[in-house]
C-alpha cells in the first residue's frame, strides 16, 4: 500500500468515526460499567419501592450500570447525608437523590460534584444553586397536573358545572402551585365552570371529609369535588359516599392508587391522577447513564430513555411526561 493509500485509509476511518459519533448517540451498551448510587427519601415505603423497581429494570436493560440502592430507615436528614458521604468515599460514578431537605443535603452533594461525581435528583429536588446538581428528573410539572385535574373534571361533569376544591394547608407549596394552574386552565378553556368553594382542611382526612360535607350541603348544585392531597382526596370521596351521592357528584384528585383503590372499586371515584413511580425510577437511571456518557447535557431538548422513548428536557429539568391516570381497568396492577 502506497503512502497516499495509507493516508486515505486513515482519513476514511477518522471520517467514519466522526460520522458515527455525530449521527447516532453513543450506543447504550458500549460505555464502561458504572456504579449509580440511588437514595430515596425513605426506604421501605411502597412509593419508593416502586421507584426502585423501575430503577432495577433500567439497570438490567442497560447492562452496564451497577445500581446501588440504599436509604434512611427513618426520614432523618443526617442519615441521608451519612449514606451519601460513604458513596463519595467510594467514588461511585453517579448519585441520584430524592432530598428529605433541599438545603441540608446540598453541601454533601456539592462535595460529590467537587470530587467529580455526577449528581442528579429525582422526586424531591435539592437547592439547585447550593447543591450544584446537574439535572432533576421531574415526575410531573405543576402545570401538567393542574391542567389534567381540570380536564378530567370537565370530562366527568361537563364544562359548565359548579365545582368545589378541597386542598391541604393554605400555604402548602405543591397545592398552591397546582391550584394556580387549575385556575388558569379553567379561565382559558372552561370559562363557564364555576368554582364555588375552596377549603383548606390541612393534612387531616376527617376534616377534609367534614368540610366536603359542609360544601355539598351549602351548595347542592355542586357536581364535582377536587381533592388535591393524599388525604383530601379520600376524605372527599368518603363524604360523597356517605351522603349517598355516588354517581351524582364526581370526585377527582391526586393520590396514590393504593389509598384510592376501595373508592375506585366502589365507583365513587372514576380516575386517580398521579405519575408512575416505576417509570420515574426507570427514567432516573437512564438519565444517570446519559449524563455520565455526556449524551445528555444542559441545553439539550430531549434524550432517549429506553422504553419511554424520547423524553423532553427543559433546562435542568428532565420531564417524565404527562401525568398518569389510574382507573378500574389498571388500578390493581399498582401496589403503591
Amino acid at each position: 500500500m502506497s503512502l497516499t493509500g495509507r493516508w486515505w485509509t486513515l482519513a476514511s476511518v477518522l471520517l467514519l468515526c466522526g460520522v458515527s459519533g455525530a449521527g447516532s448517540p453513543v450506543p447504550q451498551n458500549s460505555g464502561k460499567r458504572i456504579r449509580v448510587a440511588m437514595i430515596p427519601k425513605l426506604k421501605g415505603i411502597s412509593y419508593f419501592n416502586a421507584c426502585e423497581r423501575g430503577a432495577r429494570e433500567a439497570a438490567e436493560e442497560l447492562g452496564n450500570v451497577q445500581l446501588i440502592y440504599d436509604g434512611p430507615l427513618k426520614g432523618r436528614v443526617d442519615d441521608q447525608i451519612r449514606i451519601i458521604d460513604n458513596w463519595i468515599t467510594q467514588k461511585v460514578d453517579v448519585i441520584a437523590f430524592a432530598a428529605n431537605d433541599p438545603d441540608a443535603i446540598a453541601p454533601t452533594l456539592k462535595k460529590a460534584r467537587q470530587k467529580g461525581i455526577h449528581v442528579i435528583g429525582y422526586d424531591a429536588d435539592a437547592n439547585p444553586k447550593s447543591s450544584g446538581r446537574e439535572f432533576f428528573v421531574n415526575q410531573a410539572t405543576f402545570q401538567a397536573i393542574g391542567y389534567e385535574l381540570v380536564d378530567e373534571m370537565a370530562r366527568q361533569v361537563g364544562p359548565r358545572a359548579s365545582v368545589a376544591l378541597i386542598s391541604s394547608d393554605l400555604n402548602a407549596p405543591n397545592q398552591k402551585e397546582w391550584t394556580k394552574w387549575m385556575k388558569k386552565r379553567m379561565k382559558e378553556k372552561y370559562p363557564q365552570m364555576k368554582l364555588v368553594a375552596e377549603k383548606y382542611p390541612g393534612e387531616d382526612r376527617q376534616r377534609a371529609m367534614r368540610m366536603t360535607q359542609e360544601v355539598l350541603n351549602a351548595f347542592p348544585d355542586v357536581k364535582g369535588v377536587w381533592g388535591i392531597s393524599s388525604v383530601a382526596f379520600p376524605g372527599a370521596a368518603d363524604a360523597v359516599k356517605q351522603m349517598g351521592l355516588k354517581g351524582k357528584v364526581a370526585v377527582v384528585g391526586l393520590s396514590t392508587p393504593k389509598d384510592m383503590r376501595p373508592f375506585v372499586k366502589d365507583g365513587v371515584v372514576k380516575t386517580v391522577i398521579l405519575w408512575n413511580p416505576v417509570d420515574l425510577g426507570y427514567l432516573t437511571i437512564y438519565a444517570a447513564r446519559a449524563v455520565y456518557d455526556g449524551t445528555l447535557k444542559r441545553g439539550m431538548k430531549s434524550f432517549k430513555a429506553g422504553r419511554l422513548g424520547t423524553v423532553k428536557v427543559d433546562g435542568d429539568q428532565i420531564l417524565l411526561g404527562p401525568p398518569m391516570k389510574f382507573d378500574r381497568s389498571n388500578i390493581d396492577k399498582f401496589d403503591f
Partner: peptide, 16 residues
C-alpha cells in the same frame, strides 16, 4: 455543630 454541618435547622433534628 449539626446545624453548621448541614446548614439547616429543623425541628426533626436529633431524633433518636
Amino acid at each position: 455543630i449539626l446545624v453548621s454541618r448541614v446548614s439547616t435547622a429543623r425541628s426533626d433534628m436529633g431524633d433518636g
